[in-house]
Design a protein around this nucleic acid. Sequence first.
DNA 1: AGCAGTCAAGTTGAC
DNA 2: GTCAACTTGACTGCT
Length: 304
Amino acid sequence: MRIGYPCVNESLDCTSSATFRLASYSDERVELAVASNLLCLQRILEYNVANELRFFRISSGIVPFGSHPINTFPWQTRFAAEFQAIGDYIKAQRMRISFHPDQFVVLNSPSEDIVQRSIAELVYQGSMLDLMGLDSTAKLQIHVGGLYGDRDLAISRFVATYRELPVAVQRRLVIENDDRLFSLRDCLRVHEAVGIPILFDNFHHECLNHGEPMAEALRLAAGTWHPERDGILMMDYSSQQVGERKGKHTSTLEEELFREFLTHLHGLDVDIMLEIKDKEASACRAVSVLRELQLVAAEAAPQS
DNA sequence: AGCAGTCAAGTTGAC
DNA sequence: GTCAACTTGACTGCT
């Protein structure tokens, strides 16, 4: 079991998503930004290793305008060595990596334009994992998409688009149950059609479900991951911010709720991403909880 | 230096 | 109709 957090480290004084405005685009600025972002990413990964955090979601903004037509800078070749060095470090430290392309990636949109831009974004993010030399257990995590007033049609459009994706994207793509539109059950329908793994979000499942108990939901999601090809189940963990609207993520880890959640695993091995406002602070506390329970994987330690 | 307004992209639902 | 929310703020021009 690995524990992680998304994108941003609040303890370090650097960002891995430096960017600039489209209006001020230049190849030189791309080169400067990517160089700076990769340096920061390496620092974050080293921080994570030092704190036994071996699951990390890399920011989508490593390459500014990474899938935009304006960006013609050959960053893949210019930074090939840097990406490879980061990938080597990730592999040596047995870390798990994911990306979560943002809300503009909608594979089931009725607009062909939006679908094509979405695919370009997935190709961009997947190519970073390729450049790092990571295998297909490193994933690209997205939601099923929009509803457009017809659930069946929306799902069938996702399935049709998935089948046409470049293999480089297909092998890494996973879908996450969301909190309002597409439940775990909907995701299972997509899985049955095309075999795509389901990244399980416990909090979204609490917000939107069909009565499946947490333990059963975990078992169903885990069953969609092919052990050799996909690795063990990835999941997002969060809980409700008390007093806020339903679906609002908690600002800090509620340890009692986290312990209670762990009891539903029944020995299932998973990698847990803490989608919690205070980032690595909560992730470190989760590691402490797990250490008390002795659930953190000992084999995650580097061979020495 | 600090701050407010704005930034490539989509969709939904609360108000 | 407008606008916040979503996995994640950062840049820019003004004072």
